[in-house]
């Protein structure tokens, strides 16, 4: 087993584990923003590791896989922001377990 092969196994294994953790996190976390913590960070690194690991198994696919990876890194936080704003701005969606909420004051002042 070559070094490249071992690296590929480590990458895919870790990536799959992190993707599983993201699924578990989304299932277990109590409110929207905390779900987002698991759903954004873990899926991003999980897909990056997993796709690059598979790229190491099949080097001719690497450019296309890197393109998918780049796209995921760039767009994942953006969709997370959009969802976070939606969750914050809609009173019925907003979680009520926040200990500090600076945004409330700023919004209150603006309106």
């Amino acid at each position: 087993m070559s070094f490249m092969d071992i690296l590929a196994h480590v990458f895919t294994g870790l990536g799959a584990l992190v993707l599983f953790a993201s699924g578990l996190g989304v299932f277990r976390m109590p409110d929207v923003f905390n779900k987002m913590h698991a759903g954004t960070k873990a899926t991003t690194l999980g897909s990056v590791l997993f796709l690059i690991g598979l790229g190491l198994f099949e080097p001719s696919w690497m450019p296309k896989l890197l393109l998918i990876v780049l796209f995921i890194i760039l767009t994942n936080p953006v969709s997370s922001h959009a969802l976070a704003r939606a969750a914050y701005n809609e009173p019925s969606e907003k979680p009520d377990n926040l200990l500090i909420d600076d945004l409330e004051e700023s919004k209150g002042g603006a309106q």
Partner: peptide, 15 residues
């Protein structure tokens, strides 16, 4: 900056 903060430990950007 906002995107980076979203992907780093324990924090996400709301607005």
């Amino acid at each position: 900056v906002a995107n980076s903060i979203t992907l780093t430990p324990g924090t996400i950007t709301i607005d």
